[in-house]
Amino acid sequence: MADFDEALAAFAAEVGPDGPVCVRGGGTRWHLGGEAAPGTREVQAPAGVVAFEPAEMTVRVRAGTPVAELHAELTTAGQRTALPERAGGTVGGALMAGESSIARLGLGSVREALLQARYVCADGRIASAGAATVKNVSGFDLCRLLVGSLGTLGLVGEALLRTVPVGETERWVRLAGAEAGAVRSCHTAASVLWDGTDVWTLLSGYEVDVDEDRGRLAALCDCEDVDGPPELPPHRWACTPAEAAAFDARNGAAGPFVAEIGVGVVHASEPQPSRSVEPGVVELNRRFKERFDPTGRLNPGRDPLRKP
């Protein structure tokens, strides 16, 4: 059982046992899954890195901590997490949105990053899920359920995250006029982006492997080193990897786009048409919400089914 933590207790007291409440992080994904219902009280999770253990490859961090600030600390030991860095975006916000970073091929998905969570339940009490080890089966997997839940089942105050080593060498390369599948042979590709015309890839790993992949790409097509990824259009579409790789066929509805190849996320200029969800899944979502938050007080107005 986790130790008593003053910051967490204060957060729970602020959330209290009743009344509609929503939690604000950096506000970078504030509109995801719907707007906060009018009259909802805003609270903020505590901030700060509690314990970083490089040899364990874990970090315990309070949910209100900006991801960039966390990563600045982890970088000192050559590590980071799978959470995406958005200007001002917090750890709690990234977990609740559940959206992976563009380097998902290299860093893994956000949903695998959470090892343990301490959160405030709908009744105002503090619950703990998961365990403090990199591998753990600890009964039903509440951590997976919390990631991407938009704070509608519980309000995360503290997270124990898995860290990953940063590649010794990281290098963005742009391949002019390349096909989406051009980078398939490169094992160091941590990100592959394609706008229908050019491909950008982040090669990450040991220098010798990155250089080899860079050489392989240069033999295939016209490629140049660049500072970073292209600018991403504002709307996020979720689709299958196969759909992402063949995305230009649907260009009409999306406008200019950047597709994450090998992942299945497309950054498009227009919002994604609503996805059809089978009735059984809708019903299960309803049952989870009802069981975990019977009065509907946690982040009212938001619904993960309405996430694009």
């Binding site: 559940g98 039903f140 359920l145 979720a238 689709c239 990897p241 996320v265 969800v277 979502n285 993960p304």
Partner: peptide
Amino acid sequence: VTAEPAGYDLRGAFVGS
């Protein structure tokens, strides 16, 4: 099979149950 299925991660909640 999509990158980020809609709704709660019911798959994740089911694995290990």
